[in-house]
Design a protein around this nucleic acid. Sequence first.
DNA 1: GAGCGTTCGTGACGCCCCGTCATGATCACA
DNA 2: TGTGATCATGACGGGGCGTCACGAACGCTC
Lengths: 211, 211
Amino acid sequence: MSNIAYFPKPHVDQRPGKRERTKTANRQAILDAAREVFGELGYDAATVRDIIRRTGLASGTFYNYYKSKEEVFDALADDGARRFRPLLREQSEKATDFESFVRGAILAYFNFVATEQEAWRINRPPGEQIPHARPTPEVTAVFDEVREAFARVLEHAHAPPVDLDYLTTACIAVAREIGDKMLERRPVDTEGAADFAVKLILGGLPALPRL
Amino acid sequence: MSNIAYFPKPHVDQRPGKRERTKTANRQAILDAAREVFGELGYDAATVRDIIRRTGLASGTFYNYYKSKEEVFDALADDGARRFRPLLREQSEKATDFESFVRGAILAYFNFVATEQEAWRINRPPGEQIPHARPTPEVTAVFDEVREAFARVLEHAHAPPVDLDYLTTACIAVAREIGDKMLERRPVDTEGAADFAVKLILGGLPALPRL
DNA sequence: GAGCGTTCGTGACGCCCCGTCATGATCACA
DNA sequence: TGTGATCATGACGGGGCGTCACGAACGCTC
């Protein structure tokens, strides 16, 4: 069969070359496998080889993409933070005041983690511990974005200046831990949990010490 | 040399036998070594043999006392919770109202962690992560004690019923995370941090949704 | 399409840590 | 002093770790 004049591929192909494609595919496959393995075995028990075995790739290939189990875990956290960031930004953009921002952001977070949990914390053994998220770039960015949103909204409302670092830390802490507890309850009630967290924060804000 | 009538030891010795003494000594030595090693290398990098090497004991001896690195870490958390518990109880006993309890408890906690940090988080490499404390018996007991104290104090004040589990979770979350941030600042200001956390919680309490 | 340099998947290898176990020393008790 | 129980010891097999030399597949040029 001749291919003369048969939809000749343009010399400048928009799609990246095969090298690039298999590279991102492998990276993603490792990430997905890691999610599954961490979910099934727990972080401590999981090994690099458990992860790479599931992808069908060779053990050495893992190290072409990540240096260690810790690094692939960080990449997972980074990935989660990266996917959550637009949702957070959406809330901070459409928020008119402090309350609507806090409520929107926390509800968005609770819905996010509820979805994530369904997606990959399938049957983790109870008592198993996942390490605290390390301050990866995206995770730090989420923290910073929350703080900046606080600063913007509070200044716009002519609220007295408070310790923004402590405030951000406290709000994220409450959201994270209430979120965890929420996931343990049946049925999962994101609205109720958000209502609790939001009211705690909003009620506490006016009482905070001023700088 | 004769030992006749030379301060004969009473048959019923109050002190435990040598077996028992070396046993507790070994257990404590392993615990202390683990504290040091976790502090110096971080939790992930530390190995059972790093710990046991520092005690001068044989590697097999470690497993006579703990099943794994995880278990000795849990024992450390348990130990910390056990030492903190009386301080917490003291606050809940001398507290007259909700505010004095929360303020006393949080300040006690902040002073406690500040002291602990001096004692054994000597020069941990930055970014190193220590896992979240697993719900060991003593850790759970602290959580329960806080919740019971909340229940008692709130009922005594005829406050409307709230979601005690969420409230306890949120307060502990705030205390833990603000406490961590506090330790990163110089100078370490336990009073200021406690003031922030207490006012946030106390301000938020009246706004919480009622059951 | 042929040739060439580069990239990257591969799996065997040496290293070290893991948890176990047979052995012997030490202790409690008679 | 004798005897059984307890427990420290360190050697050992198993396995995960991270590396590396090799070769295949790819991109590029002529």
